[in-house]
């Protein structure tokens, strides 16, 4: 049952990811990317990582996609649609793809040899995934968590400084 749903969501993710890179209309690509994020979130749910699934939908399908659409709006789409697509990096892409495939095969071989099924993201039981994540975040990883806020602050100030110049002009 779990396997059936895994293959369903995995197939959905792969198919929508293929559509992301094969559509001509950039806006359609972006929408298929949202679909891919949703399928990946479903796989996270299957792995019992509910919090990660929620964040995947909230931050990736919500916020990161806003940034992608912005990049799409910043380039002039009607002009880019006229450009002929080329495959100049075909050989490099093939080599890197093979390398990645070998790596994934190696990892798969490793997990097949070990008598373990799908690894659960966190100890499930009385405590939920969100709770165990929170305990780790607010006790063991407290300092990295506070540093994240500084990182976000730096991103915010950087964006304002960069965009302000354009606005004042």
């Amino acid at each position: 049952m779990e396997q059936f749903f895994f293959f369903l969501f995995a197939a959905g993710a792969v198919i929508s990811a293929l559509l992301v890179i094969s559509r001509r209309n950039v806006m359609h690509c972006a929408l298929f990317l949202v679909l891919t994020f949703f399928f990946v979130a479903a796989i996270f749910v299957l792995l019992k990582a509910e919090f990660l699934a929620a964040v995947q939908v909230l931050v990736y399908a919500g916020a990161i996609m806003v940034l992608f659409t912005f990049v799409i709006f910043l380039v002039h789409i009607p002009r880019t649609e006229k450009i002929r697509q080329t495959f100049r990096q075909k050989n490099l892409a093939l080599a890197l793809g093979l390398l990645l495939g070998l790596e994934v095969a190696y990892i798969l071989y490793g997990t097949m040899a070990a008598p373990a099924s799908l690894p659960a993201a966190a100890p499930v039981g009385a405590v939920g995934n969100t709770e165990s994540f929170g305990v780790a975040l607010f006790t063991r990883f407290l300092f990295p968590f506070e540093v994240v806020s500084v990182l976000l602050l730096a991103a915010m100030i950087g964006a304002i400084v960069l965009a302000k110049k354009e606005i004042d002009r």
Partner: peptide, 14 residues
């Protein structure tokens, strides 16, 4: 192409 002001709002949202 969109006005750059939308970009600040978008990045603050993210």
């Amino acid at each position: 192409r969109f006005f750059i002001r939308f970009y600040i709002i978008a990045i603050l949202f993210v």
